[in-house]
Design a protein around this nucleic acid. Sequence first.
RNA 1: GGGGGCAUAGCUCAGUUGGUUUAGAGCAUCUGCCUUACAAGCAGAGGGUCCGCGGUUCGAACCCGUGUGCCCCCA
Length: 870
Amino acid sequence: MELSKNYLPGEVELKWYKHWVNSGYFHSTPNDKKAYTVVIPPPNVTGVLHMGHCLNNTIQDILVRRARMQGFNPCWVPGTDHASIATEAKVVAMLRERGITKSSLTRDEFLGYAWEWKEKYGGIILQQLRKMGCSLDWERTSFTMDADYYESVIKVFVDLYKKGKIYRGKRMINWDVRAKTALSDEEVIHKEVAGKIYHLRYKLDLPGEEYITIATVRPETILGDSAICVHPKDDRYKKLVGKFAFVPLINRRIPIIADDYVEIEFGTGALKVTPAHDMNDFVLGQKYNLEIIDTMNDDGTLSEAAGLYIGQDRIEVRKIITKDLEAAGNLVKIEDYTHQVGFSERTDAIVEPRLSLQWWVDMKKLAAPALEAVMSDEISFHPAKFKNLYRHWMEGIKDWCISRQLWWGHRIPAWYDEEGNFYVAHNEAEVNANHPETKGKKLIQDADCLDTWFSSWLWPFEVFKGLSNPNNAEVNYYYPTSTLVTAPEIIFFWVARMIMAGEEYMGKIPFKDVYFTGIVRDKQGRKMSKSLGNSPDLLGLIDQYGADAVRFGIMIASPAGNDLLFDESTLEQGRNFNNKLWNATKLLKMWEARQNKEGAIPEDAQFAMDWFEAKLTTTQNEVDEMLKTFRLSEALKTIYGLIWDDFCSWYLEWIKPGFEQPMHQGVYEKTVEFYDALLQLLHPFMPFITEEIHHTLKTQTEDLCVKLYTPTSKVNSEVLNAGALLQNVISTLRDARNKNQIKPKDAIELHIQTSNNAPYQTIQNILAKQINAATIQYTSSAIGASIVVALEKDKFYIVANQAIDTASLKENLLKDLAHQQGFLISVGKKLDNEKFVQNAKPEVLAIEQKKKADALARIQTIEESLAQLG
RNA sequence: GGGGGCAUAGCUCAGUUGGUUUAGAGCAUCUGCCUUACAAGCAGAGGGUCCGCGGUUCGAACCCGUGUGCCCCCA
């Protein structure tokens, strides 16, 4: 079979993915092997594959494939998240295109459209993961709104409510006026905004025309003021505390109070308190039992309670009220002022603090064991630096607002009667059963849904029906899972909460290791986002470079624990690496056809084989260690170097027969064996090409995908040293050739002056081939008219058909000499220091003494060479 | 405002309990080669005040303090 000039990934990838799935390699069922379980961080059902997914899922696939080849029973569970806000937004947009408004539909009608959308467009991302080669168990695809899953979410709500860990409370929440929904703090994006600060004077309830001036960035909220607050130590206002003032325009009488929350230096030092429309003012209001006047409707327009501007949007009102205040003589001045304003992550509307009845989870009770699990390293974070962040957050944890004013999601299982009583239960029948007084009464279920994270925190066990079918064989086998791979930005949204849910419902932590990936940024270091348009088209890249190259490119640029600066050039590097592998295959296929079975294996080939065997084993052990500690990028770099440099550039060249000469069968077979071992090592990172070449090399009895790693043998370090010496000599002599402008085609004669010929004799055939030497001889004295090179204690004389540039030779030797002498001085300083000799460990002392001896020997060699040059 | 992190070659990063030859790799750069696997390649080279300052130590890229500059999270 003729192999193509370059590697062509397209068909190969399709072919093998299909084969792997059809062979059932990715499907797992409990057996007597040890489980290695990974649950995918479920992408939004609306999602399309982006660079973040690519990184995240490549890492998971590497871990899972490696586990498979190590003899574990790996189970990687795919699935999607119903993503209530994002999906509802998509469905609303789809309906708008069809000329339907959400408000014209009943809840059931809307959900009908939503499911229709989900079935049609949802989960595209799962198809895309296949293109990347992800070895997911597709027979286990889960969705956070599957029937069983849905029931479990409800079960958890009811259970936590019964345990007193869920409560209903009027609290300040972030309100998205456009989506008319509550947002969690994490869904609010704070941005610096250039605004104005308004100084307004309030008439005091005292005889005469006296005023107090406050500063505010939100003049439209004065209609909801219930107090003015000053600092108790502020001399300007001390006499006013306990007195009253009138809110401008509406003349409501409000008290002047004192609290050290107020900053004396800020603004005028007097703060208007509007408990219904500011988080901090709300706290003050609670403390001083102030009236709460909610002046805003859920769409951001002013309410009846405002008294003025009813029905107009708060942003418009700001302009109008400013004019009216000015006309009324209450506006003192306006200054420019830059401050932080919260925007909705989803709709970009300015978020309004608003009082609302919401459902909350009391987090303090859940957080304690989850904090302990990470602090005690029962769960290990990689990199460990995230432990600090986690601790800080968990120690200051706030209650979790879990209700969302949406229809797509898990509906809150609470029912209200007409008197305003409410009952939490799994369903209405249960309410009637538990509360006989409700029978016959009209009950209405809470209209709101639960926060999406309230379902995803059950993911690691509910994908195995750990809650809907407790103690089933699967959850007992697969849970706790092994490793969670996720982005650091959802450490609180998701990771922390999964730990809590795991402890609460399974009585066990949900995973042993958490690997936090970096954030994918563009070349300029900007986070990739839709709005910036700096996100490349991943499927296009896969088409262009192949999935293996994309996986390579993204992994080689992903230092453990750091962000990844995505640059397409690493994909090119990946493609080139594919091609390198392909060409090595072509070389081996050529040798396969030219085998010679006669005679013994040549001595130099035997040396090369022994050396590579040792090198391979050493590297396999290194890679093993790196993967154990999640240094994936480093592991890939190591494998890349082993294949490109050690195998292709050194080993294959060392065993390469002369022009059109045969290759000894023993050497050929060993080399195929080596190559296969390399492919196996690389397979988790680049699954497609490795599988393809594995089968191209020879007829195989099993696929690489499921081929078990064999334990490594002991390393012969002596042969490793001999190989390193050979490489060093070759490089040094090639450098000398280059510097003296000896053309690659021109053969040289080499004379070696050494006190010990033996190490050179074993490698001399390889050496001759590698530096294009016609002859290699040993000498005990200097060779005239030659290029002299000093290496360690030995000297090399190159005789070439070429004029010798003594000046540049001398220059090189002098440079080397200066370096060695400088080194000698630094070593000498240490050894001459009595305190060093007294305090240093004996082995350190020995090393320093050896350094000194080596430096002296090298200096002598160089000086002798210089002397010979005259 | 509170908290966390980072700073080593042009770029991206290694550098494990302080001593492993006056710091390593990949990419990029430069020089020479179209050498029968590979120019998507081969061979070789150059390139660093380990952010500044101070301290601990016989010895600091590494430990401590401080300054500067970047990044992230929360308010």
